[in-house]
């Protein structure tokens, strides 16, 4: 038995879709944010797997940059969530409709 690239493709797709589903069905803003992190991680896994099987390090560079941008994104996003909680007193996405036209 040997592990092929197909194993990583399927695992990555599963993780990505679990993240997307979590973003759709959950209303807690923090858990939606965690779902986004899950999707980013699944993409990273695919990059690393392809970098290994194609014997190149280009994929590893992309993972490095994705992680740096994800760190910046999380710091900004959590600051916005804290500000929203102070402003509205909730993190329920259905109640945050101040931008609704």
């Amino acid at each position: 038995m040997e592990i092929t690239i197909n194993y990583y493709v399927i695992l990555s797709c599963l993780l990505f879709c679990i993240g997307a589903l979590g973003f759709i069905i959950r209303r807690n803003l923090l858990i939606c944010f965690m779902s986004i992190e899950l999707m980013l991680n699944s993409v990273n896994l695919l990059f690393v797997a392809y970098a290994h099987y194609l014997k190149t390090t280009l994929g590893l560079m992309y993972v490095f940059f994705i992680m740096a941008v994800a760190a910046a994104e999380v710091s900004i996003g959590l600051a916005i969530i804290v500000m929203l909680f102070r402003f509205k007193g909730t993190v329920d996405m259905d109640k945050l409709n101040i931008l609704k036209g």
């Binding site: 923090l30 944010f33 965690m34 992190e37 991680n41 990273n44 690393v48 797997a49 970098a51 290994h52 590893l60 993972v63 490095f64 992680m67 994800a70 760190a71 999380v74 710091s75 959590l78």
Partner: peptide, 22 residues
């Protein structure tokens, strides 16, 4: 998958920094 550097960064940045922030 022979990506030791990425594994270390994953633990430090994601499991260490980002999740602690969460």
């Amino acid at each position: 998958l022979n990506a030791e550097f990425i594994a270390a960064i994953q633990l430090i940045v994601y499991a260490g920094a980002i999740m602690v922030l969460f």
